[in-house]
Simulated scan of single mutants.
Amino acid sequence: MPTVDTNTKTDALDALPDAVAAEAFRRLVRHLQHRHDAQNIDLMGLSGFCRNCLADWIRDAGFDGDKEAARELIHGMPSVQWKATRQSPATEEQLARMQESVAKNAKADAE
């Protein structure tokens, strides 16, 4: 089981070879492209991240493209097309779950 060194804030993920991490990331993205029934709002409500977060994270990691290019890479199509063909309107319940989840992210980030 991976351990976290609280003195250096590193964990076993840092020792994972980049090629392995990259392959796992690509598999995750392709899985999410296939499972468009998993709405971003539901991903946010459950896990505190969504496809758009992944697009932001690749930009933070050094992707040269702009926000739209990053989203197109993650969605597998332009985001305007994604929204028109894959995204349904969020319900009040979904929005509430997302707000609770985002609050958990903020709390974890503060620790």
Rank of each mutant, 00 (worst) to 15 (best):
R97Q: 00
E72L: 07
V102Q: 05
D14L: 10
D109I: 06
G76A: 01
W82N: 05
M1W: 12
A19G: 10
R51K: 12
M44Q: 00
H34T: 08
T8C: 08
K67L: 12
P78D: 01
E93K: 07
C50Y: 03
K83Y: 09
D37T: 06
A69V: 00
N40T: 03
T85E: 11
S47N: 13
L73G: 09
A96W: 00
E100T: 03
E68Y: 06
H75C: 03
E100D: 11
A24Y: 13
A103S: 09
H31N: 12
A69Q: 15
A19Q: 10
Q39T: 01
S79R: 03
G76T: 02
T91E: 05
G65T: 08
M77R: 11
A12T: 15
K67Y: 14
K83V: 11
S101H: 06
I41E: 00
E23V: 10
V80S: 12
D109L: 00
C53I: 08
R27Y: 11
A61V: 10
C50S: 05
N52K: 11
M98T: 01
A21I: 02
M1A: 15
T8W: 04
H34I: 03
H34V: 05
A106D: 02
C50G: 11
I74E: 04
G48N: 05
E92T: 04
C53W: 08
T3D: 15
E72H: 08
L28R: 12
H75M: 10
T91L: 01
K67A: 15
T91V: 02
R59A: 13
E111H: 09
V80D: 12
I74V: 14
W82C: 04
T6A: 11
